[in-house]
Simulated scan of single mutants.
Amino acid sequence: MPDPSRVTRRDFITAPVAGHARAADFWLRVHRQIMACRFEIVLPGEAGGATPLAREALDYADRLEEVMTIFRDTSELSRVNRGGHAGPVVVGPVLFAVLALCAEVHRETDGAFDVTSTPLSRCWGFLGREPRLPAPGEIEQARSVVGMQHVRLDREGCSVSFDRPGVSLNLGAIGKGYALDRLGALLQRRGVRRVLLSAGSSSILASGGHAEPWQVDLRSTVIDERLARLHLAHGAVGTSGAGEQFVEVDGVRYGHVIDPRTGCPAGGVLSASVITTDAASADALSTAFLIGGPDLAQRYCSTHPDVIALITLDDGSRRPRTFGAYPGVRMTHG
């Protein structure tokens, strides 16, 4: 069994376990496959009575997937993508809230975070896992339908519309984190105070670690060594990495992370991790900083309190560059 005193990026991929524990403690893990990854809720052993609440929370996550996925024709988001160009599509408060957050993060990251960028990923072949180098005209055609400026959010009518055909929304870079936030809020309302929630290999939400912090190890997906150790009392961690999909043409390697502002793959950053109050923001910002690099991370953190960014550059260095501050965590590098 993995060491129950810490969580690493590799542990998340194989067997998520978490927490800083006394030797006599044991942990209860309730998990399910949701949003194409493992959602897990970790409770201290003495909280065994909360197991039904954990299952209820995962049921809620199933319902959230039905709202936010693009892989089911019946989802709310698919309905918006089909009809948004023809006029306003009325949506529920959950979808509207997450789209409003997307618009806010897009604006505050100078467009580096953009949930309309799917046409670019399709253009480069990464969506179908058949990467290729597109012609400049193809990139420009895809860019013509990318950008939150093409999305209209009517708060009064709780509706969404697009200003042209071809625009589509994909919440893959924020949906898991948003779901963790909703699950965490549900469990808090039901009296569950100490809990760690995770989604796949990239998203964590923790609470109740003031006396015994949750210990989290951050590892790059490329550099096989620990980047930092976090002692997390409360808050969220989101990590984005350059990954393995790429296309190489004339000796030039193009990765799968597309900068929506240029239409071309971003480069120079191996991984970006964000620690902040909520998992949706942590996920979205880690994606933005993977694209925008240390300049964007430094600029954002200088004007937004309670955010830490760790940026690992693709320059042979081993130590991530760190920006910002967050009171809910104590961090050591390496």
Results as ranks from 00 to 15, higher is better:
156 E>Q: 13
179 A>K: 00
134 P>Y: 00
176 K>Q: 07
108 E>V: 07
108 E>A: 04
94 V>C: 11
108 E>W: 00
151 V>M: 07
112 A>E: 13
160 V>I: 11
179 A>G: 01
100 A>F: 02
167 V>W: 01
122 R>F: 05
129 R>H: 14
140 E>N: 12
103 A>F: 03
112 A>N: 13
132 R>I: 00
136 P>N: 04
144 S>E: 12
105 V>L: 12
135 A>W: 12
94 V>D: 15
143 R>V: 13
147 G>I: 02
154 D>W: 00
121 S>Y: 12
117 S>I: 10
132 R>Q: 08
130 E>C: 10
168 S>P: 00
99 L>R: 00
181 D>M: 05
106 H>D: 14
124 W>K: 02
98 V>H: 03
107 R>P: 10
155 R>A: 15
149 Q>P: 08
127 L>C: 12
123 C>T: 13
121 S>R: 11
141 Q>W: 03
120 L>R: 04
108 E>D: 12
173 A>M: 09
91 V>D: 11
179 A>V: 15
135 A>E: 15
173 A>I: 01
180 L>M: 09
136 P>I: 06
154 D>N: 14
159 S>Y: 06
130 E>M: 10
143 R>C: 13
177 G>D: 10
152 R>Q: 09
140 E>I: 00
146 V>N: 06
181 D>Q: 01
112 A>M: 14
135 A>C: 08
118 T>V: 15
105 V>Y: 07
109 T>S: 14
175 G>S: 09
171 L>V: 04
90 V>Y: 03
176 K>Y: 00
140 E>L: 09
146 V>Y: 03
127 L>S: 15
93 P>R: 08
121 S>K: 10
146 V>Q: 03
91 V>L: 15
99 L>H: 07
115 V>Y: 08
91 V>H: 13
97 A>K: 07
159 S>K: 01
164 R>Q: 11
164 R>L: 04
169 L>N: 02
182 R>F: 02
148 M>W: 12
125 G>Q: 05
169 L>M: 04
111 G>F: 12
150 H>Q: 10
168 S>K: 09
148 M>E: 08
114 D>Q: 09
94 V>A: 14
168 S>G: 07
162 F>W: 06
